[in-house]
């Protein structure tokens, strides 16, 4: 554990708490892509069910895994049951097969061991890298977002960005490289570049998040 990874994980944790807070206080999931949230459940379940069979890593690791599975399922419940009328599928139109298909194919080709659990792990890594796309696509379509939604996305993007110095640190201190996680992680972080540009130049200066026409 190093400081980049710790702050990355905490940022990830914070992003989820921000999202739950947004939905509960506004009693609405307006502006949130259900597809992206459903993909995160798929990511967490496929990656963290290793709790059932893999070697124990640490209490921290176990707690975080349970938190991510539990909270992502809770968000789906909030969106599909509790605040269902506020969720608008007509603007959440990104095709899931464009993300699931390539993730399955990549996982079958690029994995560390051609075993069920390792292919599942690789699948979750590739899917996580792409899972934000329905949300960013929705943002693109509506052209604007509530400040709290942008804070959620910024915390999520910061988590990804912080994993990059974490890998550099691990490379120099432990000599370990996880090429699948690194390549997918860099792609994933790259997806946030446009968002971050607007977040820093507008939202953090008190302006509304609006995409240029």
């Amino acid at each position: 554990m190093n400081i980049f990874r710790l702050f990355g994980d905490l940022s990830h944790l914070a992003s989820i708490l921000i999202l739950i807070h947004k939905i509960q206080t506004s009693r609405s999931c307006r502006g949130i892509s259900f597809k992206t949230q459903a993909l995160y459940v798929a990511v967490f379940v496929t990656r963290y069910l290793d709790l059932l069979y893999a070697e124990h890593v640490s209490i921290y690791n176990t707690f975080m895994k349970l938190f991510f599975i539990g909270s992502s399922c809770y968000i789906l419940y909030l969106m599909k049951v509790r605040f269902r009328p506020t969720q608008d599928p007509s603007i959440d139109t990104f095709r899931l097969e464009y993300l699931l298909g390539p993730s399955v194919v990549l996982a079958l080709i690029f994995n560390y061991t051609f075993s069920f659990t390792e292919v599942l792990w690789a699948f979750s890594i590739y899917l996580e890298a792409l899972a934000i796309l329905p949300q960013l696509f929705m943002l693109q379509r509506t052209g604007e977002a509530e400040a709290i939604t942008t804070h959620y996305l910024a915390a999520l993007g910061a988590y990804r960005a912080l994993y990059i110095p974490n890998w550099l640190y691990r490379y120099f201190s432990e000599g370990t490289v996880d090429p699948i996680a690194v390549v997918a992680g860099i792609v994933q972080t790259g997806l946030y570049v446009d968002f971050f540009y607007i977040y820093f130049t507008k939202v953090l200066r008190g302006q509304k998040f609006e995409l240029p026409a």
């Binding site: 070697e55 895994k65 974490n166």
Partner: peptide, 10 residues
Amino acid sequence: ESKPSPHDEL
């Protein structure tokens, strides 16, 4: 270059 096992990152 070593293979991370178990996957210790989240």
